[in-house]
């Protein structure tokens, strides 16, 4: 088959049109569509961890919210144990009355230190020295056990019991304790 000049021109023209169509198709139609597709996939991939994070935060928040009433009740219970007012006004009286109920009459309590609680914000730790000049060791032991059992905010730091040569039946007791109070 032999092509004439006009036919060859038509073929070349057709080829050029074809190339143009293919180029336009990929560059102007399919290309942007593919780019958009890829961008959408990227957006989805970026959004999924954010959604998981948000879901995790909400779940964690719900767990904490469920635990909060119990914690609030514990704090309220502890706060209720701390009387209002300056500790120096109520604590020595409280100790005197406490030991009196355990048969120990002479008790002197004095404050020896005060500092913010190292791990509880909004609370202070006050250190007290309690002197009992005359007490039977076992009576004191029972009172100490009761003190440790009934006063959870009190922690006995030092305890000294000395016998007295002139009265061997009674001992002299000195204890240092710390008490948690509100700021």
């Amino acid at each position: 088959m032999k092509f004439g000049k006009e036919e060859i021109q038509k073929i070349v023209l057709g080829g050029l049109v074809g190339v143009g169509v293919i180029y336009s198709y990929f560059d102007l139609l399919l290309g942007p569509l593919k780019t958009r597709h890829a961008n959408t996939l990227k957006s989805i991939a970026a959004l999924q961890p954010e959604i998981s994070r948000a879901k995790g935060l909400i779940a964690k928040g719900n767990t904490i919210r469920d635990q909060a009433p119990q914690a609030e009740a514990t704090i309220a219970q502890i706060d209720a144990m701390i009387p209002e007012g300056a500790p120096v006004a109520w604590f020595p009286t409280r100790m005197t009355e406490f030991f009196k109920t355990h048969g120990i009459d002479k008790v002197s309590t004095r404050m020896t230190g005060e500092a913010p609680h190292p791990s509880l914000s909004g609370y202070r730790r006050i250190t007290w020295n309690i002197e009992i000049p005359k007490v039977e060791c076992l009576r004191f032991g029972a009172a100490l056990a009761a003190l440790e059992n009934t006063e959870p905010l009190i922690s006995v730091e030092t305890c000294n019991i000395d016998t007295q040569r002139e009265e061997p039946d009674v001992q002299r007791v000195s204890i240092t304790l710390s008490n948690i109070v509100k700021q």
Partner: peptide, 20 residues
Amino acid sequence: QTLDTSAQFVKSIEGRFYWA
């Protein structure tokens, strides 16, 4: 903070040294 405070209280109370 409420949970931490409560936990610290419990730890502080339960971690005491008992002299009796």
